[in-house]
Write a protein that binds this DNA or RNA. Sequence first.
DNA 1: CAATATTAGGGAGTGGAACTCTCTAATTTC
DNA 2: GAAATTAGAGAGTTCCACTCCCTAATATTG
Lengths: 206, 206
Amino acid sequence: MRISELSKSAGVPVDTVKYYLRMRLLPEGRRTSATQAQYEQSHLDRLRLIRALTGAGGLSLATTRSILEVLDRRDRPTSTHQLLEQVDQLLAPLGEEPEDTTRAEAVIADMGWDLKITEPGPTSRLAQALAAIDAADFPLDHQAVLDYAHVMQALADEEVASVPDDADAALVRYIVLGTILIEPLLLALRRLALINASARRYSADT
Amino acid sequence: MRISELSKSAGVPVDTVKYYLRMRLLPEGRRTSATQAQYEQSHLDRLRLIRALTGAGGLSLATTRSILEVLDRRDRPTSTHQLLEQVDQLLAPLGEEPEDTTRAEAVIADMGWDLKITEPGPTSRLAQALAAIDAADFPLDHQAVLDYAHVMQALADEEVASVPDDADAALVRYIVLGTILIEPLLLALRRLALINASARRYSADT
DNA sequence: CAATATTAGGGAGTGGAACTCTCTAATTTC
DNA sequence: GAAATTAGAGAGTTCCACTCCCTAATATTG
């Protein structure tokens, strides 16, 4: 297909598509002449993926490109675990000051998590979340954090268990996108569940 | 305290504090002369809260201001439920096109959620998350979404149950901040839990 | 009291992100 | 043969969150 069709199918302006091409988010089309190129279904899929990651996923174009590169890599990572850590590092918001991670580490220790981690990203994200809760003077004790952690652990266990066994490109895709795109889903569901729960309590009150 | 102390205590540049004052995110200090004002502990608390919401919370300054206004309102909302919906609306990413919400509504119906909702925000957020998963061609069937929803429901039930009963300003604060600041915590924990779960599976594999 | 530092207030400038516009030369399509 | 489309690339735009800079007034320090 030509660029205008690609644009129309994905609902993305032609200029934006060209911009993505320039930014190397989209691979070039197959040139048919000096001013013409052909785009395939794969381009459309990629374009939709870019919009999903930058839209609901909330990623920047730069981060999106890194993620796409991971998806495109021909050499498979040695383990799911390694891949996850890598993705997490890419998604880490390159923190300013190396904040205090003692509380985050305490949570990890109390959960008995053996992360075999080399990168600071995941732990520092937790530290930042805890620091924000603290700075806002929101009352949340250690036990409450552990309660949340247990819920997430149960969820993660199921998610990892549900990952298919055949370690091919589809697996990498599954893990990377599952990490990123499930997040907005979880948050949206939590918001609705909160509203529902409070509606019930409200009705009970009246 | 003077502005420089406020700035130092919160770790925020003086110019930024002034900017927040101009943007009406921070209330003015008590003027002592034409070029001097006194700031209280309440200003420091507010400043820390702003940084928590814009930092880990990921809110824009505009959204942050709206949230602060909700916290400052003197008239209490008639219900927790109403407050949550209001907050959710503020946090909604003013969607472009009114996307297809049939799937989102199906999820809500299957969960038996009776939301008594007037604003589209919460539902449309879910619709967007589902649309992104779809656009990325990520395999996630209806049942899987419901599984996630059940987990979030259990979580939300506990959260709502843990909300103190006395409906005063502290309650509003608790609910609003709990909605926003727990989100990054949950995501951070999920990432760690995923890494841990996959590390265990990896060890088991080898 | 004199020198130095700080501040309120506000205009203007900055830097990054993600486009969006415009132009040219070369095709395609009608 | 006229009108439309395109690749490629520079430049301009919009928004955001600061950051810089300036003045006149005040506070602090030696």
